Computed example of a mutant assay.
Amino acid sequence: MGRAAFLGRLRIVFKVISWVAVVPLVASAALTVAMLSEDRAAFEPTFVNSTGDILEQAGLARWQFLTWAAAIVALLFAALVWLAWIYFATRFLRIVGVEPPRYGPLSAVALHFLPIVAHVMPMVIMSELERVTRDPLRWRDLPANWLPATSWLAGRLSLTAMALTGVFQERAQTPHQYSMALWLMVLATVGCAGGVYLFNRFLSRMQRLQMVLAVKITEEQAQGHS
């Protein structure tokens, strides 16, 4: 029960950090829309290239970049908490003695960093964690839940898009290119906020399943000692 409660505390930390990240994310999107509503010619002095520094720019462009950067930093902290949750959630299953997934705690974390594999395996890890926790005895026969895969795809694709839009803004040479980068930023922001929602929904579901499993294991152990 204590380990399930610890996972619940990690979930809360992730929830707080991830939603804190959404605040500057939304602010950045609002500033981006405001910039897009201006005259396209006004984009010219806001280009971020080898001849200028975004921190030296005035007006909306500077604050749009700073809020975007703040959101990225907060999301990186949330990612660290997520990796800690993956590690301890996998370890939890081994400690309570149920049939574990096909990977250990360290390999579950390491698979998030391997090229190409990192785009797919986290979905598999999340899906197996959910099924094992839902029914440790028959998890291989359970249908896959849509939530793990959808959460990972939304989060991964939107974060990748956010990083790319930063590059596009830096390399923009014309007002049209710059405005296209800003539109992509708005879309990436919407996707990222949706990914945060789905991730927290997944973790909430996992917390319920982990507590149910912990209670079941505790009761079985108590009956075995009686």
Rank of each mutant, 00 (worst) to 15 (best):
A214F: 01
R134N: 04
M1K: 10
P115N: 12
P122T: 07
S37D: 03
M121S: 10
A154Q: 07
S151C: 03
L137G: 11
L164H: 08
L164N: 06
I54S: 09
T189L: 03
A61M: 01
R102V: 04
A5N: 11
N145L: 09
Q173V: 08
A149M: 09
R138L: 13
R91L: 11
T90M: 00
A4G: 07
Y197M: 07
N200L: 05
F65W: 15
W146G: 07
F202G: 00
P105K: 10
N200S: 11
V117P: 01
A144F: 14
G59V: 06
L142E: 08
F202M: 04
I116P: 02
L198D: 00
R9Q: 13
Y178Q: 03
A5V: 13
G195E: 05
G2F: 04
Q64K: 14
H176L: 15
V73R: 08
H112W: 15
F168Q: 12
E56G: 15
L25Q: 09
L76W: 06
A78S: 11
P136D: 05
R94C: 07
V215H: 14
G166R: 01
T46A: 05
A5M: 12
A89Q: 07
E38S: 11
T90L: 00
G97C: 11
D39T: 02
A108L: 04
A172V: 00
I86V: 15
A118T: 15
L83T: 01
R208T: 06
Q223F: 15
V20Q: 08
L182R: 09
E128H: 07
T174P: 00
W63Q: 06
V98G: 03
M126L: 12
Y103I: 04
K216S: 15
S107I: 12
A193V: 06
A108W: 02
T51H: 14
A70D: 06
M35K: 03
Q177V: 02
R94K: 12
V96P: 00
